[in-house]
Amino acid sequence: MLTRRQLMIWSVSSLAAFSGGTAVYQLIQKEDFESIETDKYQFLTDSDQILFLSIAPVVLGDTCLKLWTQQNVSFKTILTLIDNAIVNFSKRSQQEVRELLDILWNRAAKLLVARVWTSWTDADATTINNFLQVWRESWLVTLNQGYQALQQLIIAAYYSKTESWSLCDYPGPPIQR
């Protein structure tokens, strides 16, 4: 029998092949999706990893992605950075992030709340961007909060990395340690 993890990897490679638009995985390295690592992270589960690997490229945009490629930073670094941030949050905030990620993964809720596709892995960049926009513009404060949480986690993780600083022309601290 396929394990849940194998199933997810399988669905990444097969579904993506059939999808019409630019599957998000095409923006980053396909291997990233295929090498989801169980037990590597303190907080992120297998499905959280897939979720962030799908959403983060859209939250960041091409310019950010290209810079990391040029700098030889593996895109999966974003997962480590996000994981490191979350484990220092209060227990309550960690639970809130968990609930948010579960809602996003849960298909039924996804159809209801995010009103989009059937699986994160076959969603194309436009669809994910639409989902982010819907949450951002919604009159429901809960969705605005969800947007803010995802946006801040991903953007803060990206700019915490020295290799990202040339994008914003930040020379770094005057004293190097």
Binding site: L60, L132, Q152, I154, I155, Y159, L167, C168, D169
Partner: peptide
């Protein structure tokens, strides 16, 4: 950069264009 980027409430290319 971390605090400055994360409080700009947009995403994608519009965000990185601002960060430039």
């Amino acid at each position: 950069p971390v605090i400055g980027s994360s409080i700009i409430p947009v995403h994608g290319e519009p965000h990185s264009q601002m960060m430039k």
